[in-house]
Design a protein around this nucleic acid. Structure first.
Lengths: 120, 120
DNA sequence: AATCTTGTGCTAGCTTTACAGCACAAGCTC
DNA sequence: GAGCTTGTGCTGTAAAGCTAGCACAAGATT
């Protein structure tokens, strides 16, 4: 469905979360202002703020009131192995013309295999 | 947050989509009835039906009115390589204590690297 | 100290989505 | 053909989430 432009607080949350944990946004790096993000994605300020709030609750970012929002020190720690596996999966899927959403569905299914199971 | 029990049409859609494309539900295999699924997940029938409708639109399942719903022939075709990469990623993430939701966020971020980019 | 920046909080209204519960239609089974 | 199974459709109701726009507080900047 989408994959280009987030349109809800959760999606914006996930977008930055991914950027941080994948290292695209490094330690201490500054995020766009709430207003800017709201404008970029065409959502209300309250929606962007909500996403930032969620990220802060999880310790991924630090906000200081007039100094903007920055990636929390040590937040971008996702082991390189994970990132590389993610990249490999992305390439394999795109090569097989499988959409991002479908790839995520597969990942979810595989994830369950090693813990929970289908109610079946 | 969740990861155990889907609570919306989209999530039920994704659950079965993943089960099918990952091969957990094979060609021709029967899905639970709409009523059963609604009951299992504690949602309204209309919600489960909506998910099934979406899956059918995408050609993943075939519904025949009194004979139930089955996986469409040839729908479970997700290249083995993709599934294996997904499994590898799942293991790496779980080993690093990274949640499913975070792993998905990372995957999304990595996905974009090879096509779109952050609006920045 | 004055001013600009930026995160936060609020209200009211709208849209989307799920719920409950039932009725119906198509078709399988015996 | 009778009856059960199962997907579909309908109604009205309720809850959740987003929008828009503004006001405020904390702090950076000059």
């Amino acid at each position: 469905m989408n994959g280009a432009t987030p349109s809800s607080a959760d999606e914006i949350d996930a977008l930055f979360r991914g950027a941080i944990r994948s290292g695209q946004l490094g330690d201490g790096e500054r995020l766009p202002t709430v207003r800017q993000t709201a404008h970029d994605f065409g959502v209300a300020q309250a929606t962007a703020a909500k996403a930032y709030k969620s990220l802060e609750r999880d310790g991924l970012i630090v906000t200081r009131t007039a100094a903007g929002t920055r990636v929390a020190p040590g937040a971008s720690r996702a082991p390189q192995a994970v990132i590389e596996h993610a990249r490999a999966l992305a390439e394999a899927s795109e090569g097989a013309l499988i959409s991002l959403e479908d790839t995520i569905a597969i990942l979810r299914a595989v994830w369950r295999t090693e813990a929970t199971r289908l109610p079946r």
